[in-house]
Design a protein around this nucleic acid. Sequence first.
DNA 1: CACCTTTAGCTAATGGTATTAGCTTCTGAT
DNA 2: ATCAGAAGCTAATACCATTAGCTAAAGGTG
Lengths: 221, 221
Amino acid sequence: MRTEPSAPAPTSDRRARRRQETIEEILDIAQAVMTEEGVNGLSLAEVARRLGVQPPSIYKYFPSLMAIYDALFLRGQVEHLASMREAMANATPGLDALTKGLEASGRWLLAHRALGQLMFWRPVPSFEPSDASFAPSIEMVRLQRAALADAVAAGELGPGADSDEAVYLISTFIAGVLTQAMANEPDLPWGEGRFTPTFPKLMQLVPALYPPRTPTKKRRS
Amino acid sequence: MRTEPSAPAPTSDRRARRRQETIEEILDIAQAVMTEEGVNGLSLAEVARRLGVQPPSIYKYFPSLMAIYDALFLRGQVEHLASMREAMANATPGLDALTKGLEASGRWLLAHRALGQLMFWRPVPSFEPSDASFAPSIEMVRLQRAALADAVAAGELGPGADSDEAVYLISTFIAGVLTQAMANEPDLPWGEGRFTPTFPKLMQLVPALYPPRTPTKKRRS
DNA sequence: CACCTTTAGCTAATGGTATTAGCTTCTGAT
DNA sequence: ATCAGAAGCTAATACCATTAGCTAAAGGTG
Protein backbone atom coordinates (compact mmCIF):
# COMPACT_ATOMS: atom_id res chain seq x y z
CA MET A 1 0.00 0.00 0.00
CA ARG A 2 1.29 3.46 -0.89
CA THR A 3 1.60 6.15 1.69
CA GLU A 4 -1.39 8.41 1.30
CA PRO A 5 -0.63 12.09 1.88
CA SER A 6 -4.20 12.44 3.11
CA ALA A 7 -3.31 10.31 6.11
CA PRO A 8 -0.79 12.37 8.15
CA ALA A 9 0.79 10.74 11.17
CA PRO A 10 -1.37 10.45 14.22
CA THR A 11 1.25 8.35 15.96
CA SER A 12 4.34 10.48 16.29
CA ASP A 13 4.78 14.12 17.09
CA ARG A 14 8.37 14.72 16.17
CA ARG A 15 7.62 13.10 12.80
CA ALA A 16 4.51 15.20 12.29
CA ARG A 17 6.46 18.38 12.92
CA ARG A 18 9.21 17.40 10.48
CA ARG A 19 6.57 16.56 7.95
CA GLN A 20 4.85 19.89 8.39
CA GLU A 21 8.18 21.67 7.99
CA THR A 22 8.81 19.88 4.71
CA ILE A 23 5.33 20.81 3.51
CA GLU A 24 5.99 24.47 4.30
CA GLU A 25 9.37 24.26 2.59
CA ILE A 26 7.77 22.85 -0.53
CA LEU A 27 5.24 25.68 -0.54
CA ASP A 28 7.98 28.29 -0.07
CA ILE A 29 9.89 26.87 -2.99
CA ALA A 30 6.78 26.60 -5.13
CA GLN A 31 5.94 30.23 -4.42
CA ALA A 32 9.47 31.28 -5.34
CA VAL A 33 9.33 29.31 -8.58
CA MET A 34 5.99 30.86 -9.46
CA THR A 35 7.36 34.31 -8.77
CA GLU A 36 10.35 33.70 -11.02
CA GLU A 37 8.80 31.67 -13.81
CA GLY A 38 5.20 32.82 -13.81
CA VAL A 39 2.19 31.17 -12.30
CA ASN A 40 2.01 28.27 -14.70
CA GLY A 41 5.76 28.01 -14.92
CA LEU A 42 5.46 26.11 -11.68
CA SER A 43 6.64 22.56 -12.16
CA LEU A 44 6.91 19.72 -9.73
CA ALA A 45 10.25 18.80 -11.22
CA GLU A 46 11.71 22.22 -10.49
CA VAL A 47 10.44 22.16 -6.92
CA ALA A 48 11.99 18.72 -6.44
CA ARG A 49 15.24 19.96 -7.95
CA ARG A 50 15.46 22.86 -5.51
CA LEU A 51 14.46 20.71 -2.59
CA GLY A 52 17.24 18.33 -3.54
CA VAL A 53 14.94 15.39 -4.01
CA GLN A 54 13.58 13.27 -6.83
CA PRO A 55 10.23 14.36 -8.30
CA PRO A 56 8.18 11.37 -7.10
CA SER A 57 9.14 12.13 -3.51
CA ILE A 58 6.96 15.25 -3.64
CA TYR A 59 3.98 12.93 -3.83
CA LYS A 60 4.60 11.91 -0.25
CA TYR A 61 3.47 15.41 0.71
CA PHE A 62 1.02 16.48 -1.98
CA PRO A 63 -1.17 14.20 -4.06
CA SER A 64 -0.73 16.28 -7.21
CA LEU A 65 0.51 19.55 -8.65
CA MET A 66 -3.00 20.93 -8.35
CA ALA A 67 -2.92 20.26 -4.62
CA ILE A 68 0.14 22.51 -4.38
CA TYR A 69 -1.68 25.21 -6.30
CA ASP A 70 -4.58 24.82 -3.91
CA ALA A 71 -2.38 25.09 -0.83
CA LEU A 72 -0.73 28.22 -2.25
CA PHE A 73 -4.15 29.62 -3.05
CA LEU A 74 -5.23 29.12 0.55
CA ARG A 75 -1.98 30.56 1.87
CA GLY A 76 -2.48 33.65 -0.28
CA GLN A 77 -6.07 34.10 0.78
CA VAL A 78 -5.17 33.94 4.46
CA GLU A 79 -2.27 36.39 4.21
CA HIS A 80 -4.20 38.72 1.96
CA LEU A 81 -7.20 38.73 4.27
CA ALA A 82 -4.97 39.40 7.27
CA SER A 83 -3.31 42.43 5.67
CA MET A 84 -6.67 43.82 4.65
CA ARG A 85 -8.15 43.23 8.07
CA GLU A 86 -5.24 44.92 9.79
CA ALA A 87 -5.46 47.99 7.55
CA MET A 88 -9.17 48.29 8.24
CA ALA A 89 -8.68 47.96 11.98
CA ASN A 90 -6.23 50.87 11.96
CA ALA A 91 -8.60 53.20 10.14
CA THR A 92 -11.70 55.18 10.97
CA PRO A 93 -14.67 52.81 10.61
CA GLY A 94 -16.74 53.42 7.51
CA LEU A 95 -15.61 54.70 4.13
CA ASP A 96 -12.07 55.34 5.35
CA ALA A 97 -11.67 51.78 6.59
CA LEU A 98 -13.07 50.44 3.32
CA THR A 99 -10.68 52.53 1.25
CA LYS A 100 -7.66 51.69 3.41
CA GLY A 101 -8.61 48.03 3.38
CA LEU A 102 -8.88 47.90 -0.37
CA GLU A 103 -5.62 49.80 -0.77
CA ALA A 104 -3.94 47.31 1.51
CA SER A 105 -5.43 44.57 -0.62
CA GLY A 106 -3.99 46.15 -3.75
CA ARG A 107 -0.64 46.68 -2.11
CA TRP A 108 -0.48 43.09 -0.99
CA LEU A 109 -1.52 41.75 -4.38
CA LEU A 110 1.09 43.76 -6.25
CA ALA A 111 3.73 42.70 -3.74
CA HIS A 112 2.76 39.03 -4.10
CA ARG A 113 2.00 39.02 -7.79
CA ALA A 114 2.27 35.30 -8.32
CA LEU A 115 -0.16 34.46 -5.55
CA GLY A 116 -2.40 37.33 -6.55
CA GLN A 117 -2.66 36.10 -10.10
CA LEU A 118 -3.33 32.59 -8.93
CA MET A 119 -6.07 33.88 -6.63
CA PHE A 120 -7.89 36.39 -8.81
CA TRP A 121 -6.68 35.79 -12.34
CA ARG A 122 -7.12 32.01 -12.55
CA PRO A 123 -4.34 31.55 -15.09
CA VAL A 124 -4.40 27.79 -14.63
CA PRO A 125 -7.79 26.76 -15.95
CA SER A 126 -7.34 23.16 -14.91
CA PHE A 127 -7.00 24.40 -11.33
CA GLU A 128 -10.20 25.06 -9.42
CA PRO A 129 -9.73 26.07 -5.77
CA SER A 130 -11.34 23.81 -3.20
CA ASP A 131 -14.20 25.13 -1.09
CA ALA A 132 -11.95 25.32 1.96
CA SER A 133 -9.41 27.44 0.12
CA PHE A 134 -12.15 29.71 -1.10
CA ALA A 135 -13.64 30.43 2.31
CA PRO A 136 -11.48 33.49 3.22
CA SER A 137 -12.77 35.38 0.21
CA ILE A 138 -16.27 35.07 1.65
CA GLU A 139 -14.96 36.60 4.86
CA MET A 140 -13.56 39.44 2.75
CA VAL A 141 -17.00 40.27 1.41
CA ARG A 142 -18.30 40.21 4.98
CA LEU A 143 -15.62 42.69 6.07
CA GLN A 144 -16.50 45.03 3.24
CA ARG A 145 -20.20 44.76 3.98
CA ALA A 146 -19.49 45.69 7.61
CA ALA A 147 -17.48 48.75 6.54
CA LEU A 148 -20.28 49.82 4.24
CA ALA A 149 -22.79 49.40 7.08
CA ASP A 150 -20.57 51.59 9.26
CA ALA A 151 -20.43 54.19 6.50
CA VAL A 152 -24.21 54.20 6.23
CA ALA A 153 -24.57 54.46 10.00
CA ALA A 154 -22.14 57.39 10.05
CA GLY A 155 -24.13 59.13 7.34
CA GLU A 156 -21.32 58.93 4.83
CA LEU A 157 -23.42 56.92 2.41
CA GLY A 158 -27.08 56.34 1.69
CA PRO A 159 -28.81 53.19 2.93
CA GLY A 160 -28.52 51.48 -0.47
CA ALA A 161 -24.78 51.19 0.12
CA ASP A 162 -25.31 48.48 2.74
CA SER A 163 -25.81 45.83 0.07
CA ASP A 164 -23.97 43.11 -1.75
CA GLU A 165 -24.53 45.12 -4.92
CA ALA A 166 -22.41 47.92 -3.51
CA VAL A 167 -19.67 45.45 -2.60
CA TYR A 168 -19.62 44.14 -6.16
CA LEU A 169 -19.54 47.62 -7.58
CA ILE A 170 -16.68 48.73 -5.39
CA SER A 171 -14.78 45.51 -5.96
CA THR A 172 -15.05 46.37 -9.64
CA PHE A 173 -12.97 49.49 -8.97
CA ILE A 174 -10.16 47.68 -7.27
CA ALA A 175 -10.29 44.80 -9.74
CA GLY A 176 -10.06 47.20 -12.65
CA VAL A 177 -7.15 49.13 -11.23
CA LEU A 178 -5.28 45.95 -10.40
CA THR A 179 -6.01 44.26 -13.72
CA GLN A 180 -4.67 47.23 -15.60
CA ALA A 181 -1.67 47.64 -13.35
CA MET A 182 -0.69 44.00 -13.51
CA ALA A 183 -1.20 43.73 -17.26
CA ASN A 184 0.52 46.96 -18.22
CA GLU A 185 2.91 47.87 -15.43
CA PRO A 186 3.76 44.49 -13.97
CA ASP A 187 6.82 45.73 -12.08
CA LEU A 188 5.48 48.77 -10.29
CA PRO A 189 4.28 48.64 -6.69
CA TRP A 190 1.02 50.12 -5.50
CA GLY A 191 0.94 53.90 -5.70
CA GLU A 192 3.16 54.24 -8.76
CA GLY A 193 2.29 54.27 -12.44
CA ARG A 194 -0.83 55.30 -14.28
CA PHE A 195 -3.44 53.13 -12.63
CA THR A 196 -3.12 52.54 -8.92
CA PRO A 197 -2.92 56.28 -8.03
CA THR A 198 -6.41 56.73 -9.47
CA PHE A 199 -7.93 54.43 -6.89
CA PRO A 200 -8.52 57.06 -4.17
CA LYS A 201 -10.26 59.23 -6.75
CA LEU A 202 -12.48 56.34 -7.68
CA MET A 203 -13.40 55.77 -4.06
CA GLN A 204 -14.45 59.40 -3.77
CA LEU A 205 -17.11 58.58 -6.34
CA VAL A 206 -18.85 56.15 -4.04
CA PRO A 207 -20.86 58.85 -2.23
CA ALA A 208 -22.10 59.99 -5.65
CA LEU A 209 -23.40 56.47 -6.27
CA TYR A 210 -25.04 56.15 -2.87
CA PRO A 211 -25.76 59.72 -1.80
CA PRO A 212 -26.46 60.14 1.91
CA ARG A 213 -29.76 61.78 2.91
CA THR A 214 -28.02 64.48 4.93
CA PRO A 215 -25.07 65.68 2.87
CA THR A 216 -21.90 65.62 4.95
CA LYS A 217 -18.74 67.67 4.61
CA LYS A 218 -18.46 66.86 0.93
CA ARG A 219 -15.80 68.64 -1.03
CA ARG A 220 -15.20 68.77 -4.74
CA SER A 221 -11.91 67.40 -5.98
CA MET B 1 17.87 22.70 -45.65
CA ARG B 2 14.56 22.75 -43.79
CA THR B 3 11.59 24.58 -45.12
CA GLU B 4 11.39 27.83 -43.21
CA PRO B 5 7.82 28.92 -42.48
CA SER B 6 9.09 32.48 -42.57
CA ALA B 7 9.74 32.09 -46.29
CA PRO B 8 6.29 31.67 -47.89
CA ALA B 9 6.16 30.86 -51.59
CA PRO B 10 6.74 33.69 -53.97
CA THR B 11 6.73 31.28 -56.92
CA SER B 12 3.30 29.72 -57.16
CA ASP B 13 -0.10 31.19 -56.53
CA ARG B 14 -2.26 28.11 -56.31
CA ARG B 15 0.19 26.74 -53.78
CA ALA B 16 0.19 29.94 -51.76
CA ARG B 17 -3.58 29.89 -51.55
CA ARG B 18 -3.68 26.27 -50.36
CA ARG B 19 -1.06 27.10 -47.80
CA GLN B 20 -3.04 30.06 -46.53
CA GLU B 21 -6.13 27.90 -46.24
CA THR B 22 -4.27 25.40 -44.10
CA ILE B 23 -2.95 28.19 -41.89
CA GLU B 24 -6.48 29.48 -41.33
CA GLU B 25 -7.69 25.96 -40.63
CA ILE B 26 -4.99 25.49 -38.01
CA LEU B 27 -5.98 28.75 -36.35
CA ASP B 28 -9.67 27.77 -36.36
CA ILE B 29 -8.82 24.47 -34.70
CA ALA B 30 -6.48 26.12 -32.20
CA GLN B 31 -9.17 28.60 -31.23
CA ALA B 32 -11.67 25.77 -30.76
CA VAL B 33 -9.22 23.84 -28.60
CA MET B 34 -8.52 26.91 -26.48
CA THR B 35 -12.25 27.47 -26.03
CA GLU B 36 -12.77 23.91 -24.90
CA GLU B 37 -9.65 23.29 -22.86
CA GLY B 38 -8.71 26.74 -21.63
CA VAL B 39 -6.11 29.11 -22.97
CA ASN B 40 -3.08 27.12 -21.93
CA GLY B 41 -4.81 23.85 -22.64
CA LEU B 42 -3.84 24.52 -26.23
CA SER B 43 -1.46 21.88 -27.47
CA LEU B 44 0.16 21.41 -30.81
CA ALA B 45 -0.47 17.70 -30.57
CA GLU B 46 -4.22 18.18 -30.19
CA VAL B 47 -4.33 20.57 -33.13
CA ALA B 48 -2.44 18.05 -35.26
CA ARG B 49 -4.80 15.30 -34.14
CA ARG B 50 -7.86 17.27 -35.22
CA LEU B 51 -6.24 18.32 -38.47
CA GLY B 52 -5.51 14.65 -39.16
CA VAL B 53 -1.78 15.14 -39.35
CA GLN B 54 1.32 14.30 -37.34
CA PRO B 55 2.50 16.96 -34.87
CA PRO B 56 5.75 17.87 -36.66
CA SER B 57 3.81 18.78 -39.79
CA ILE B 58 2.40 21.83 -38.00
CA TYR B 59 5.91 23.24 -38.06
CA LYS B 60 5.62 23.67 -41.81
CA TYR B 61 3.11 26.42 -41.07
CA PHE B 62 4.11 27.87 -37.72
CA PRO B 63 7.62 27.92 -36.24
CA SER B 64 6.37 27.22 -32.72
CA LEU B 65 3.39 27.02 -30.43
CA MET B 66 4.03 30.63 -29.43
CA ALA B 67 3.66 31.68 -33.06
CA ILE B 68 0.17 30.18 -33.04
CA TYR B 69 -0.65 32.11 -29.88
CA ASP B 70 0.62 35.23 -31.55
CA ALA B 71 -1.49 34.69 -34.68
CA LEU B 72 -4.56 34.11 -32.52
CA PHE B 73 -3.73 37.22 -30.51
CA LEU B 74 -3.62 39.26 -33.69
CA ARG B 75 -6.81 37.68 -35.00
CA GLY B 76 -8.58 38.54 -31.76
CA GLN B 77 -7.32 42.12 -31.74
CA VAL B 78 -8.53 42.69 -35.29
CA GLU B 79 -11.99 41.22 -34.70
CA HIS B 80 -12.35 42.95 -31.36
CA LEU B 81 -11.35 46.30 -32.78
CA ALA B 82 -13.77 45.88 -35.67
CA SER B 83 -16.72 45.15 -33.40
CA MET B 84 -15.88 48.11 -31.20
CA ARG B 85 -15.44 50.42 -34.18
CA GLU B 86 -18.75 49.35 -35.65
CA ALA B 87 -20.63 49.96 -32.41
CA MET B 88 -19.10 53.41 -32.12
CA ALA B 89 -19.97 54.29 -35.70
CA ASN B 90 -23.63 53.47 -35.06
CA ALA B 91 -23.87 55.70 -31.99
CA THR B 92 -24.07 59.40 -31.28
CA PRO B 93 -20.50 60.73 -31.26
CA GLY B 94 -19.19 61.54 -27.79
CA LEU B 95 -20.03 59.84 -24.53
CA ASP B 96 -22.68 57.63 -26.11
CA ALA B 97 -20.27 56.31 -28.72
CA LEU B 98 -17.68 55.65 -26.03
CA THR B 99 -20.14 53.74 -23.87
CA LYS B 100 -21.54 51.74 -26.76
CA GLY B 101 -18.05 50.99 -28.00
CA LEU B 102 -16.90 49.72 -24.63
CA GLU B 103 -20.06 47.67 -24.23
CA ALA B 104 -19.43 46.11 -27.60
CA SER B 105 -15.89 45.40 -26.46
CA GLY B 106 -17.20 43.68 -23.34
CA ARG B 107 -19.78 41.75 -25.30
CA TRP B 108 -17.17 40.55 -27.77
CA LEU B 109 -14.73 39.56 -25.05
CA LEU B 110 -17.29 37.53 -23.14
CA ALA B 111 -18.39 35.87 -26.36
CA HIS B 112 -14.79 35.02 -27.29
CA ARG B 113 -13.50 34.24 -23.84
CA ALA B 114 -10.47 32.27 -24.93
CA LEU B 115 -9.18 34.98 -27.23
CA GLY B 116 -10.12 37.66 -24.72
CA GLN B 117 -8.13 36.01 -21.97
CA LEU B 118 -5.20 35.55 -24.27
CA MET B 119 -5.36 39.22 -25.23
CA PHE B 120 -5.94 40.96 -21.91
CA TRP B 121 -5.26 38.37 -19.26
CA ARG B 122 -1.90 37.07 -20.46
CA PRO B 123 -2.33 33.63 -18.91
CA VAL B 124 0.63 32.27 -20.82
CA PRO B 125 3.57 34.18 -19.34
CA SER B 126 6.02 32.69 -21.79
CA PHE B 127 4.00 34.27 -24.56
CA GLU B 128 4.69 37.91 -25.33
CA PRO B 129 2.75 39.33 -28.32
CA SER B 130 4.82 40.67 -31.18
CA ASP B 131 4.73 44.38 -31.94
CA ALA B 132 2.67 43.77 -35.07
CA SER B 133 0.06 41.85 -33.11
CA PHE B 134 -0.09 44.59 -30.54
CA ALA B 135 -0.71 47.43 -32.97
CA PRO B 136 -4.56 47.25 -33.03
CA SER B 137 -4.71 47.94 -29.31
CA ILE B 138 -2.99 51.26 -29.93
CA GLU B 139 -5.68 52.05 -32.47
CA MET B 140 -8.25 51.25 -29.76
CA VAL B 141 -6.81 53.92 -27.48
CA ARG B 142 -6.93 56.34 -30.40
CA LEU B 143 -10.62 55.60 -30.99
CA GLN B 144 -11.42 56.20 -27.34
CA ARG B 145 -9.46 59.43 -27.30
CA ALA B 146 -11.43 60.60 -30.34
CA ALA B 147 -14.73 59.81 -28.62
CA LEU B 148 -13.61 61.70 -25.53
CA ALA B 149 -12.63 64.68 -27.68
CA ASP B 150 -16.10 64.60 -29.25
CA ALA B 151 -17.65 64.51 -25.79
CA VAL B 152 -15.63 67.52 -24.73
CA ALA B 153 -16.54 69.37 -27.93
CA ALA B 154 -20.23 68.58 -27.33
CA GLY B 155 -19.98 69.94 -23.79
CA GLU B 156 -20.70 66.56 -22.24
CA LEU B 157 -17.37 66.55 -20.42
CA GLY B 158 -14.83 69.04 -19.21
CA PRO B 159 -11.62 69.63 -21.19
CA GLY B 160 -9.59 67.38 -18.87
CA ALA B 161 -11.42 64.40 -20.33
CA ASP B 162 -9.54 64.70 -23.61
CA SER B 163 -6.49 63.01 -22.14
CA ASP B 164 -4.79 59.67 -21.97
CA GLU B 165 -5.40 59.77 -18.24
CA ALA B 166 -9.13 59.70 -18.86
CA VAL B 167 -8.73 56.76 -21.23
CA TYR B 168 -6.87 54.84 -18.53
CA LEU B 169 -9.47 55.68 -15.95
CA ILE B 170 -12.35 54.60 -18.11
CA SER B 171 -10.55 51.47 -19.23
CA THR B 172 -10.27 50.69 -15.52
CA PHE B 173 -14.07 50.52 -15.39
CA ILE B 174 -14.42 48.09 -18.23
CA ALA B 175 -11.43 46.07 -17.08
CA GLY B 176 -12.88 45.78 -13.59
CA VAL B 177 -16.29 44.70 -14.78
CA LEU B 178 -14.81 42.14 -17.15
CA THR B 179 -12.29 40.81 -14.64
CA GLN B 180 -15.02 40.22 -12.10
CA ALA B 181 -17.40 38.75 -14.64
CA MET B 182 -14.86 36.36 -16.10
CA ALA B 183 -13.51 35.25 -12.74
CA ASN B 184 -16.84 34.82 -11.00
CA GLU B 185 -19.47 34.25 -13.66
CA PRO B 186 -17.47 32.72 -16.46
CA ASP B 187 -20.51 31.41 -18.34
CA LEU B 188 -22.74 34.45 -18.48
CA PRO B 189 -22.84 36.75 -21.50
CA TRP B 190 -22.65 40.53 -21.29
CA GLY B 191 -25.68 42.07 -19.63
CA GLU B 192 -26.39 39.20 -17.25
CA GLY B 193 -25.12 38.53 -13.75
CA ARG B 194 -23.94 40.84 -11.02
CA PHE B 195 -21.18 42.76 -12.75
CA THR B 196 -21.71 43.66 -16.39
CA PRO B 197 -25.10 45.35 -15.78
CA THR B 198 -23.35 47.88 -13.56
CA PHE B 199 -21.26 49.19 -16.43
CA PRO B 200 -23.74 51.81 -17.71
CA LYS B 201 -24.02 53.16 -14.15
CA LEU B 202 -20.26 53.42 -13.99
CA MET B 203 -20.14 55.33 -17.25
CA GLN B 204 -22.65 57.81 -15.85
CA LEU B 205 -19.98 58.69 -13.31
CA VAL B 206 -17.61 59.99 -15.94
CA PRO B 207 -19.20 63.46 -16.08
CA ALA B 208 -18.71 63.65 -12.30
CA LEU B 209 -15.01 63.02 -12.81
CA TYR B 210 -14.65 65.55 -15.63
CA PRO B 211 -17.47 68.04 -15.03
CA PRO B 212 -18.26 70.23 -18.04
CA ARG B 213 -18.03 74.00 -17.56
CA THR B 214 -21.65 74.50 -18.60
CA PRO B 215 -23.56 71.86 -16.68
CA THR B 216 -25.77 69.70 -18.89
CA LYS B 217 -29.00 67.95 -17.90
CA LYS B 218 -27.01 65.96 -15.33
CA ARG B 219 -26.37 67.52 -11.91
CA ARG B 220 -24.40 66.40 -8.91
CA SER B 221 -26.34 66.03 -5.67
C1' DC C 1 7.59 15.85 -72.16
C1' DA C 2 11.40 15.60 -68.87
C1' DC C 3 13.65 17.96 -65.22
C1' DC C 4 14.24 19.78 -60.90
C1' DT C 5 13.13 22.80 -57.12
C1' DT C 6 9.95 23.55 -53.57
C1' DT C 7 6.40 21.89 -50.48
C1' DA C 8 4.13 18.98 -47.37
C1' DG C 9 3.92 15.29 -45.34
C1' DC C 10 6.24 11.39 -42.76
C1' DT C 11 9.19 8.70 -38.95
C1' DA C 12 12.59 8.71 -35.41
C1' DA C 13 14.77 10.86 -31.76
C1' DT C 14 15.63 14.24 -27.76
C1' DG C 15 14.53 16.11 -23.63
C1' DG C 16 10.99 17.94 -20.94
C1' DT C 17 6.62 17.15 -18.02
C1' DA C 18 3.21 14.62 -14.33
C1' DT C 19 2.18 10.54 -12.34
C1' DT C 20 2.21 5.50 -10.68
C1' DA C 21 4.29 1.17 -8.98
C1' DG C 22 7.10 -0.99 -6.21
C1' DC C 23 11.31 -1.39 -3.65
C1' DT C 24 14.53 0.00 0.20
C1' DT C 25 16.09 2.31 4.10
C1' DC C 26 15.64 4.81 8.07
C1' DT C 27 13.05 6.47 12.17
C1' DG C 28 11.13 6.12 16.25
C1' DA C 29 7.62 4.06 19.30
C1' DT C 30 6.68 -0.07 21.94
C1' DA D 1 15.24 -5.52 19.83
C1' DT D 2 11.57 -5.45 17.06
C1' DC D 3 8.63 -3.78 13.70
C1' DA D 4 5.38 -0.63 11.33
C1' DG D 5 5.18 3.34 8.98
C1' DA D 6 7.49 7.26 6.78
C1' DA D 7 10.32 8.98 3.30
C1' DG D 8 13.21 8.38 0.12
C1' DC D 9 14.67 5.94 -4.26
C1' DT D 10 14.54 3.87 -9.36
C1' DA D 11 11.95 2.39 -13.25
C1' DA D 12 8.24 2.91 -16.18
C1' DT D 13 4.16 5.13 -18.59
C1' DA D 14 2.17 8.52 -21.11
C1' DC D 15 2.00 12.88 -22.35
C1' DC D 16 4.21 17.24 -24.48
C1' DA D 17 7.27 20.56 -27.96
C1' DT D 18 10.74 20.49 -30.97
C1' DT D 19 14.49 19.02 -34.38
C1' DA D 20 16.63 16.15 -38.01
C1' DG D 21 16.32 14.06 -41.95
C1' DC D 22 13.77 11.38 -45.30
C1' DT D 23 10.15 10.75 -49.20
C1' DA D 24 6.74 11.79 -52.37
C1' DA D 25 4.08 14.85 -54.73
C1' DA D 26 3.28 19.36 -57.10
C1' DG D 27 4.10 22.49 -60.32
C1' DG D 28 6.86 25.71 -62.91
C1' DT D 29 10.70 25.83 -66.53
C1' DG D 30 13.83 23.98 -70.06
